[in-house]
């Protein structure tokens, strides 16, 4: 399916990577950035990123620490704006609509593009309430039975139901780290987002819990579109369909230097830096 256009090293230095490279299928793009730049005060943390994200696929953002992966991820659902000095230029198109247009409410954006964080952050409330919270604030009106139903279905889809079905009244914070993270995933999917952003969701977890989350992601991507930031090369290789490689240079940070199918990135990358990075030579 993907048609690769050969781009020389030189061109890639100057021209931003974009879907024109033909890696992605235009018809199935859910989210794309156009010349997206993010600033913290005067510091330009993200440089003119053009990326497309495919529906029902997992796209991984990889790159060395400090290259702007998390910043880019947070710009996709406007979480960046919670940092007082942050601002963005360019556009993020969701089904063709610019999420940074003046009439767009960031709150509504985040409902449709959910997020799972590096450190599990369940609310200090019951497991049940953790999931019901998102529905309640989003103006959901329904009976107790319907709510029970959604809570159960969300927990089932997050592969957590069997472990917690007898203790829904317990504090979410009382679960183990891996369970907490699955609870956060259940919490995110309860409000039915179309896209789920995951910011190093397994970095605080042990290998077994990590494996569970990875299996879950592969299951979830049948219904959702997932974009994941990860430090773990194996993880990117195991779960993602597409991979974007980000880099920083002394004079600028937050560039996407290569974007392709995960297979290509890991087997025959075109950029030397990508090759060095995925083979573990730095970063």
């Amino acid at each position: 399916m993907p048609v690769l256009i050969n781009v020389t090293q030189k061109e890639r230095e100057t021209e931003p990577i974009s879907e024109e490279m033909g890696v992605v299928d235009r018809a199935n793009v859910v989210l794309e950035t156009q010349r997206l730049s993010v600033f913290y005060g005067n510091f330009k943390a993200i440089h003119d990123v053009n990326l497309s994200f495919q529906k029902n696929k997992i796209t991984a953002l990889i790159g060395p620490s400090g290259c702007g992966k998390s910043t880019l991820l947070r710009a996709l659902n406007r979480m960046n704006e919670l940092v007082p000095s942050a601002r963005a230029e360019g556009a993020v198109l969701y089904r063709g609509h610019n999420l940074y247009a003046p009439n767009v409410d960031p709150v509504e954006v985040r409902r449709r593009i959910g997020m799972v964080f590096q450190k599990p952050n369940p609310f200090p409330k019951s497991i049940y309430e953790n999931i019901a919270f998102g529905l309640r604030i989003n103006g959901w009106k329904g009976s107790k039975a319907e709510m029970d139903d959604i809570v159960e279905r969300s927990l089932r889809r997050a592969a957590l139901w069997d472990e917690v079905k007898d203790k829904l009244k317990q504090l979410g914070t009382s679960l183990s780290g891996g369970q907490q993270q699955r609870l956060c995933i259940a919490r995110a999917i309860a409000v039915e987002p179309e896209v789920i952003l995951m910011d190093e969701p397994c970095s605080a977890l042990d290998p077994i819990a990590t494996l569970k989350i990875e299996e879950l992601m592969i299951e979830l991507v049948k219904q959702y579109t997932i974009i994941i930031v990860t430090h773990n090369m194996q993880q990117a290789a195991r779960v993602s369909d597409y991979t974007a490689m980000m880099m920083m240079r002394p004079d600028r940070s937050g560039e996407v230097i290569e974007f392709d199918t995960t297979e290509t990135i890991f087997t025959k990358p075109k950029d030397k830096r990508t090759e060095d990075y995925v083979s573990g030579r730095f970063g």
């Binding site: 964080f117 952050n121 609310f123 919490r187 409000v191």
Partner: peptide
């Protein structure tokens, strides 16, 4: 912790909902 606030914002909560309910 910031994480709790972000968790709620990530679900599409508005500022007052984050403040009062989280």
């Amino acid at each position: 912790p910031r994480g709790l606030r972000e968790g709620a914002y990530g679900l599409g909560a508005m500022r007052h909902e984050v403040a009062l309910r989280v």
